[in-house]
Amino acid sequence: MNQPLLPPLSASRAGHPTRAATLPARVGLGLKPQHYQDILASLPAVGFFEIHAENYMVAGGPFHHYLGQIRQHYPLSLHGVGLSIGAEDPLDMQHLQRLANLLERYQPEAFSEHLAWSSHGPTFLNDLLPVAYDRATLERVCQHIDQTQSFLKRPMLLENPATYVEFSESSMSEAAFITEVVQRTGCALLLDVNNLYISCINHGRDVQAYLQQLPLAAVQQIHLAGFAEDRDGNGDRLLIDSHGAPVDDAVWALYGQIIAQLGPLPTLIERDNDVPPLAHLLAEAELAETMLAGSRLL
């Protein structure tokens, strides 16, 4: 099949030329190397595939060999994990240029990043770390998002974080912080339902109250994943964003509530650790598709 046509350029609230995300309102899967050949052999009925950008920031090799073929059959979402939007340092322009090259090469229907930081000076950390929700951080995050959208000439989706600690100097709630970022930059929201549930349990927040405070009208994509569970030093539940298990029943229930309110949205099943055979992920995708179909009837 031919590459899908891109929608025309439009202006974001930040005044930058951007393209609107156009993923289908269906269920997609995170693309894993162990599934490349199965996907090309069977062309499963999924709505799209999503890749982690940093895994493809090379000129060639087997990852590009297979992705080029898969891209001919499916819409694509590009998910960044290393731009470090929340870092105190300026954005890494070499990293941003590599992102631009990758976006130009594959023309994905959506691009997203995390509300987090993962670098300090020359040091890069293999983690997505939390930010303080205060005015100084708000200014920095908005500046970084404006710079990213302007440089890439397309909008980005910002993903809500999974967190385990909070900063005592925070002067805003997480939901209020995200709302102001969306309003000031014109970026859309990638609502990770697993992250939402994890953070609320870990910090003793009311899940429903948190949902009501988010700018849900800005949601353009949803992520679903599994978590691991432990106990903290006080014996309370500690949920860990492991991406190594099936989607939990509590997360499925939240997802059903959200799409009943918002209608069908592009939804990704994430699995980055203990990756099962493709058939297992397709079964989860089928369940999500059934729920999406039900939301269309409401």
Results as ranks from 00 to 15, higher is better:
A176T: 09
M156F: 13
C142Y: 06
Y210N: 07
Y133M: 00
Y210W: 12
N194V: 00
H144Q: 12
P108A: 02
G86K: 05
L128G: 13
E284R: 09
Y197N: 07
Q3H: 09
I222W: 00
E270Y: 00
S199K: 04
I70W: 03
S112P: 15
L31S: 02
E159M: 04
L211D: 05
E88A: 15
F63P: 08
A279Y: 03
A53P: 01
C187D: 07
L129Q: 08
S199I: 10
L67I: 02
L214F: 07
A41Q: 13
S295V: 01
R271E: 00
T163M: 12
A209Q: 11
N273F: 03
L83A: 08
R140D: 03
V275A: 11
G60Y: 05
L152R: 03
T148K: 02
L129R: 11
E139M: 08
R105D: 05
A20M: 15
S171G: 07
L5P: 02
L158W: 08
Q208E: 07
L157C: 01
S10T: 15
T163S: 15
S168G: 11
G80Y: 04
S77L: 14
D249G: 04
Y74F: 06
A136G: 05
S242Q: 03
L67V: 01
S112D: 05
L281Y: 05
L254Y: 04
L158M: 14
F177P: 06
I269A: 07
S119Y: 09
Y197C: 03
D241Y: 01
Q72Y: 02
L224R: 11
V193I: 15
E180D: 12
I258R: 11
I198K: 14
L115T: 05
I240V: 04
E50W: 13
M93R: 14
P130R: 01
K32Y: 05
E229A: 06
Q208G: 04
V182G: 13
A11C: 13
S168F: 10
L281P: 06
D241I: 01
F124R: 14
A25Y: 06
E270S: 11
D230E: 11
Q183I: 11
R105C: 01
Q94M: 11
D192P: 14
L287P: 07
M93W: 10
I269K: 01
L268H: 10
P33A: 12
N194I: 00
L67C: 05
P8N: 09
T18I: 15
L152H: 03
L43V: 14
L83D: 09
A25C: 10
E109W: 04
H65L: 10
L196R: 05
M1Y: 06
L67R: 01
L129A: 10
C187H: 05
D230C: 13
H120I: 08
L152C: 13
L67F: 02
T148V: 10
S112L: 09
S42Q: 13
G47F: 02
Q34W: 04
L262E: 07
A162S: 15
Y74K: 04
D127P: 02
Q69F: 01
P277S: 04
V275P: 13
Q147S: 07
I85K: 12
H95R: 14
A162V: 07
A283E: 15
Q94E: 12
A116E: 12
N55I: 00
D272R: 00
L6K: 04
G28P: 09
